[in-house]
Amino acid sequence: MTSPALSVSGLTKRYGNRTVVDNLSIELPRGVVAGFVGPNGAGKTTTMAMLLGLVRPSGGHAEVLGRPIRNPASYLARVGALIENPAFYPSLTGAENLRMFATVAGHDPAPVAALLDDVGLGGRGDDPFRDYSLGMKQRLGIAAARLGDPELLILDEPSNGLDPQGVREMRSLIAGLAGSGRTVLVSSHDLSELEQVCDWLILIETGRSLYQGPTRALLDGVVEGLAVVPRRRDDQWVLRELLVARGHAVALHDDRLLVDVDGWDVNELAASVNQAAFDAGMVLVELSPLRTSLEDQYLSMVQGGAR
């Protein structure tokens, strides 16, 4: 049986009296793009640093690609990482930096040009790193993490400090890293960013795990209601009356009827709405669930305690 990409049990890190990571347990299956979500200071970077052998845990146990983290030399060749901020030698060019790090890791430096192309730095690979913009530095960091075609990528806040265009580019870059069985763990405090690219989520707060599992399961679990739009605009009021008569709580917002779940099963509610429209001879052009955003879900978890 293949071991999980990450298996963390009771991992703890204390600095004096301050507990940064508190008895954290995670299991990350292989082949997913996982978002590691938490506010600033939640312990994301420290957890990643422990997984990468940079910081020693105060307690607990963890394995990366089936190897214990007390021996990072046994797995780091199969892991690519970008942690805290992209650190390169300012006087070397982007390509020279990549070749140097490939040499340290014992990787073939031949794919450096292709990696630079992949991250959109093909035309700037011969420029000194000190001349790069923040977005270019982050992209070079992604290229460096991909040296040696790693099975697991650990990326710490890769969009940090980027402008909206840069964030969008980084998102598409991360989405492109998925596939081929590669596992990606990407941390961020920007939930909307991760919601779009991650199929797995690990939510933490003050070093404790709040949720881990598929993104869809988290979001599907909280459907607030249904958005209903009849084809004829005049039918809105009639349909609203019909639904209220059936005992549903209905509001009109931006030309859409919003039907509250109000304890109903979502599928049953959809069937009831559809039936009411059908019986009245109406055609619906929209009947879709209204899901809580990841941000709302996360905030409700933080306020409501661990799950």
């Binding site: 990468l52 052998g53 940079l54 990072p72 030399a73 780091l76 990482a81 942690i83 805290e84 901020n85 650190a87 390169f88 030698y89 300012p90 790090f101 340290v104 890791a105 460096a144 040296l147």
Partner: peptide, 18 residues
């Protein structure tokens, strides 16, 4: 201070050797 030692350790974690 520039983080490059950390970046090297991500490629070879044997610190004394690095």
């Amino acid at each position: 201070s520039g983080g490059t030692f950390r970046a090297l350790l991500l490629r070879d974690p044997r610190r004394a050797r690095v």
